[in-house]
Simulated scan of single mutants.
Amino acid sequence: MPDSPLSASPYEVLGVRADANLDELRQGYRRALRRAHPDTGGSTAQFDAVQRAWVQVGTPEARAEFDRRGRSASPEPAHETWAPAPPRPRRDSRPLARSYGHPGGLTRQRYLDGIREWVGYGDEIPDPYDPALVRRAPREIRHLLADALAEEATARSLSTLGIAFTVWHDLATDAAGPGLPPKLDHLVLGPTGLFAIQSEDWGGPVRFRRGELIGEALAGERPIRALAARAKSIGRAARVKPTALVVVVPDEFADEPLQVGGSTRGAVIALVRASRLASAVFEGIPGSAQLGGSEVMEVRTRLQQTVRFA
């Protein structure tokens, strides 16, 4: 599977420059192994990442192949996944969740605007998703692409919930955090509750502390606070209350498949791995209120009358 646009390159993992010679690579590899080993304060995940980095650039042949592929951190070019995916034919006849809106649309547009501004308006960009171009871009631009991919992956996962669920994507709100757009990524309604969901990829692990997510990659963001404000904006307009606030991240960035971090204004807050999201919504978040059939219909009607898309 191609990596995230925020993933560290093998050179970054080894702690060397991209133009390091072979001796410098070997020294960096040894130092990185010592730092990453579980017996010296590292972790199995870090140790494995160092080993993968060495496989990718540790020999002249592997390094040449890595550089030829545009400095993608995966052995296969990531372009096909980073670019908008064409519709896939369905392989079964099961009814999907009703879905509205364009998941990842606004975030992709912000990425395209950002990459165009960074390159320069007078220069041609044959392919805005070229791995070599993406890897050179500033982190804040790569973060936009990573988030767009996360939103699209969440939408694919939520579509499998079945006809009892309704999903809205890219909802416009009156609330936004610093540097963040006024939109809620996803809103899901079904018998297990009303879920306000943000799809995120910060390129690093996050965890709960005192009802908020923390982690080095957050750079001061307060995701739960921002999500709560967005959900409140949607709920106030429709006169409904979300039963759960959920942040979904790539599997490797959450210690557990599902973590409950408390509640706010009657809504349970949770951090969920991407692979666990659909089952978490289908089964319900622990401690989150469920909805009766007539209540689901009433809430759906109110939302359909008030939802605006970003």
Rank of each mutant, 00 (worst) to 15 (best):
M1R: 12
D3A: 15
G15P: 00
R17M: 08
A18I: 11
A18H: 12
D19V: 00
E24W: 00
R34H: 12
S43C: 03
R52S: 03
W54H: 01
P60I: 03
A64E: 11
F66E: 01
R68K: 09
A73Y: 05
E76V: 15
P77R: 02
A78M: 06
A78I: 04
S93T: 15
R94H: 13
L96Y: 07
T107S: 10
R110F: 07
R110C: 10
D113E: 15
V119P: 01
G122Y: 10
D130S: 08
R136P: 04
R139I: 03
R139F: 09
D147E: 15
A148R: 08
A148D: 09
A150T: 12
E152Q: 14
W168V: 06
D170F: 06
A172F: 11
A176M: 09
P178V: 14
P182Y: 02
G203H: 07
G203A: 05
R207V: 05
E212G: 04
L213W: 02
E216A: 13
G220N: 08
E221N: 12
E221Y: 10
R239V: 13
A244E: 06
L245I: 06
E252K: 12
D255A: 15
L258A: 06
S279F: 07
A280C: 02
A280M: 00
F282T: 13
G284Y: 02
L291I: 10
L291F: 07
S294C: 13
E298P: 00
R300K: 13
R302G: 03
L303G: 05
T306L: 04
